[in-house]
């Protein structure tokens, strides 16, 4: 390995470790008695600036556990999962499973799903702009062929399920609303995140609607998706769901099944 490659890798090793850097690296630095402090500027940049990017991605998690705990977790996360891309727009993909792996957080079992909502929000925010389904597109399909068509959800759409009322928790933390009481006994939550135009929307939907969208997202025909959804939720009514959502940006394309 060239001296440059060796030095750069040793430097990166030292950034990842919270310990005093190896003697072999410190010996490479011009020393005026402050070599360690000088190195620390870079390690602080690495930990804190990437931690800032994570805090920007997960503002609700930060509110739920507090600044101090968030910073401690962010430092550990940055060391475990340093940025894989130069643009930090989507940094923090592994944070939801990371939260699940921390024993101290087991008393907050909803945290990881709330984090998934936040990550999906940002993914939608930066996703490619796509048109929404138009009346024109649907009206060209013969009525008898509709059921066998694929009805594709908008490409920016994400589906998140949790056993806890994570939509309510996420919603309560969008504003400084101090008076809300959210009971975990409210139970499960089915969340849809999408960006039909410029604003990201976060909606709570029924269990049936969630599974309907999930099957449609997998490319199944409308008939099959409906059957699967009604098995999950026999109260699912495709009529009222589609009347409300067929043209509101939830969908972007209808086409004959492949």
């Amino acid at each position: 390995m060239s001296p440059l490659a060796e030095l750069q890798q040793a430097f990166c090793d030292a950034l990842l470790s919270p310990e005093v850097p190896a003697e072999s690296l410190l010996n490479e630095l011009v020393d005026d008695g402050l070599a360690l402090q000088r190195f620390n500027v870079y390690r602080n940049n690495f930990i804190v600036l990437n931690g800032d990017a994570l805090a920007d991605m997960y503002p609700v998690i930060k509110r739920l556990i507090g600044e101090e705990a968030f910073r401690a977790l962010a430092s550990a996360y940055v060391r475990l999962h340093p940025p894989q891309e130069r643009a930090l727009l989507l940094y923090g993909a592994q944070f939801p499973p990371f939260l699940e792996s921390i024993p101290e957080l087991s008393g907050l079992p909803y945290l990881s799903a709330v984090a998934r909502i936040e990550y999906a929000w940002t993914e939608s925010y930066h996703a490619e702009d796509s048109a929404v389904l138009s009346e024109q597109q649907v009206s060209t399909v013969p009525t008898e062929a509709l059921g066998s068509c694929q009805l594709l959800p908008h490409p920016t759409l994400h589906l998140i399920h949790s056993d806890y009322p994570v939509h309510a928790i996420w919603q309560a933390n969008q504003a400084d609303d101090c008076n809300q009481v959210i009971s975990l006994d409210q139970g499960e939550s089915h969340v849809v995140i999408l960006r039909p135009d410029i604003d990201v929307e976060v909606r709570e939907v029924s269990r049936g609607a969630f599974h309907f969208l999930k099957r449609l997202q997998l490319g199944e025909s409308i008939d099959r998706a409906y059957e699967a959804a009604s098995q999950q939720d026999n109260s699912f009514d495709p009529g009222s769901f589609l009347t409300e959502h067929l043209f509101d940006g939830t969908f972007y394309k209808i086409k004959p099944s492949a």
């Binding site: 556990i65 101090e68 705990a69 401690a72 977790l73 400084d176 101090c178 959210i182």
Partner: peptide
């Protein structure tokens, strides 16, 4: 971890 959550309950 010192957990100090937000103000909603």
């Amino acid at each position: 971890l010192v957990l100090k959550g937000s103000c909603e309950k």
